[in-house]
């Protein structure tokens, strides 16, 4: 997924970055840097789901060149921190798997609605596939969005009565108002 293109921040090659700092001031800076890195990484590699147990596999939490990796517990605590600002949410109760939103769900929903509005698609029904994989959305940032995340973003719109989700087993669609 084009990992080579990722512009790693300087912290990534700084060994203390991979140890949770006890000094609160330092830790705040460190966690902030991690948050930025995680969001940036996910955005560039279009990654919607992170599994804290499989952190060793990817380069994000495991810098092989300096032989440092971030502990699973620390990853979870950083993701929990991100949850507070709406940039992540745990999928399972054990908090192993996390959805990462480099745009918050609110941002995603307004982006989708803006697209629908500009194309004049209010009142029509679109399938979720069309909305995330269709030719019309090729240039949009939410192109290729994972369905679970898409549904969550649409649920935000639904709450604002801007659309209605049709989630039957066969075809899953959405009607915009």
């Amino acid at each position: 997924m084009g990992e080579t293109e990722i512009a790693w921040p300087w912290q990534y090659n700084f060994p203390p970055f991979f140890t949770l700092q006890p000094n609160p001031e330092t830790r705040a800076k460190q966690v902030q840097a991690w948050k930025a890195l995680i969001l940036d990484y996910c955005k560039q590699s279009k990654l919607y789901l992170i599994d804290a147990r499989e952190a060793d596999n990817g380069p994000l939490f495991n810098n092989a060149s300096i032989n440092r990796k971030l502990d699973g517990a620390v990853i979870v605590s950083i993701l929990s921190e991100m949850q507070k600002s709406g940039h992540a949410a745990p999928v399972d109760k054990a908090k192993h798997r996390w959805e990462v939103y480099w745009h918050t769900l609110d941002e995603w929903s307004s982006m989708i609605y803006a697209h629908v509005y500009s194309k004049g698609l209010q009142g029509t029904v679109l399938t979720l596939f069309e909305l995330s994989q269709g030719d019309d959305v090729k240039d949009e940032e939410f192109y290729g969005m994972q369905q679970d995340v898409l549904v969550k973003a649409l649920q935000v719109l639904e709450r604002d009565r801007k659309c209605e989700l049709i989630l039957s087993d066969e075809d899953q669609g959405v009607k915009f108002f």
Binding site: P16, T19, Q21, Q30
Partner: peptide, 15 residues
């Protein structure tokens, strides 16, 4: 700031 790796605890300038 600290770097707590397998090789032991080391301290770095707080960048």
């Amino acid at each position: 700031c600290r770097d707590d790796a397998i090789e032991g605890l080391r301290f770095y300038p707080n960048l």
